[in-house]
């Protein structure tokens, strides 16, 4: 990669109130260029009303080897889900 030619991850919010969604990535030499490039590449069809760019290098993820250690232990904690609890059918609005 040429110096300064960085990759930025693009997140787009389609409508006010909904979550930003990852759309892809663009190259950009500075942050202003990155946000403009993201607009020009990913918002050509009215896809967005708000936009974030984040340097790809800043994304932190769980190491692949540890994925089972991070995520598997949560699978048996079924008491965190509402369906775990039995409520008599005649009780409403709960």
């Amino acid at each position: 990669m040429e110096t300064g030619d960085n990759i930025w991850e693009v997140f787009i919010q389609k409508k006010p109130g909904i979550a930003f969604k990852h759309a892809g990535s663009v190259h950009g030499y500075d942050k202003k260029m990155a946000v403009q490039n993201a607009r020009d590449a990913y918002c050509r069809r009215g896809e967005g009303r708000e936009l974030w760019v984040v340097p790809s290098a800043s994304i932190v993820s769980v190491p692949m080897e540890d994925a089972d250690a991070y995520f598997d232990p949560q699978e048996d904690k079924i008491y965190r889900h509402p369906t775990f609890y039995q409520i008599p059918a005649e009780v409403k609005n709960i």
Partner: peptide, 9 residues
């Protein structure tokens, strides 16, 4: 591209 990189720096 060199100019853009230098400017960013």
């Amino acid at each position: 591209r060199e100019a853009a990189a230098a400017y960013a720096q």
